[in-house]
Amino acid sequence: MLSAAGHQVVITARYAYGFGESGVNCLAQQTPRAPYRRQPALWARACRRLTLKALALTRQTGGKTALLLNLASLCHPSRTAFWQRNRPARIYAIDAVVCWPEHRYGQAPDVFTRHRYCWVVWSPDHHGAPSFGWLSAGDFRSG
């Protein structure tokens, strides 16, 4: 959507998931590559480091960062201070997305199908509480 609107967007992933540029270690990036940065779902233990790195890179361009996160990452006691210091502009809850590379590992384990995700968007000019919305994954699937 952002690309179609004429914005330069970088989509990176550590592993090949069928979209974006794979093989990219966000933590090793030293310079921003576009004003908008989007990362697919992040593993919990790396989430904070990757989020801070993505925010630092896009701060250099005045751009935005959008991360696909497990919804539970918003509500963990060990992350409250992080969210209070790094308030996003928007959060979009998604009803049905399974973040599992079936082309690599086969069908997702049942536990993964129960996870719920959200897009979290940071904007350098945002102050105050984030807005919250809902997305239906079915609206974005083709075929």
Results as ranks from 00 to 15, higher is better:
Asp110Val: 12
Arg114Phe: 10
Pro130Arg: 08
Ala4Leu: 15
Trp83Leu: 05
Ser136Val: 00
Arg79Ser: 12
Ala44Ser: 12
Cys47Ser: 11
Val120Gln: 04
Gly143Val: 12
Phe140Asn: 06
Arg59Phe: 04
Leu67Tyr: 15
Leu69Ile: 11
Thr51Leu: 15
Ala16Glu: 10
Ala96Trp: 00
Ile11Leu: 13
Leu55Arg: 07
Gln8Arg: 10
Leu57Trp: 02
Leu69Lys: 01
Leu74Arg: 01
Asp139Asn: 10
Asp95Phe: 09
His76Lys: 00
Arg59Thr: 06
Ala54Thr: 11
Ala129Asp: 14
Leu74Val: 01
Tyr105Met: 02
Ala96Ser: 06
Gln39Ile: 15
Gly63Gln: 05
Asp95Ser: 09
Leu55Ile: 11
Phe82Tyr: 15
Ala46Tyr: 07
Ser123Tyr: 02
Pro35Lys: 08
Arg49Tyr: 08
Val120Ile: 14
Arg45Cys: 10
Cys26Leu: 13
His7Trp: 15
Ala96His: 02
Arg49Glu: 11
Gln84Ala: 15
Ala16Asn: 09
Ala34Gln: 03
Ser73Met: 00
Ser136Asn: 08
Thr51Asn: 07
Pro109Glu: 13
Pro77Gln: 10
His7Gly: 02
Gly63Asn: 04
Met1Phe: 04
Thr61Phe: 09
Ala5Phe: 05
Ala28Met: 08
Gln39Pro: 02
Phe132Val: 13
Arg79Trp: 12
Gly63Trp: 04
Val111Asn: 09
Ser142Gly: 14
His76Ile: 15
Gln29Thr: 06
Cys47Lys: 12
Gln29Trp: 10
Ser3Pro: 03
Cys118Tyr: 06
Ser136Met: 00
Ala66Arg: 09
Gly138Gln: 02
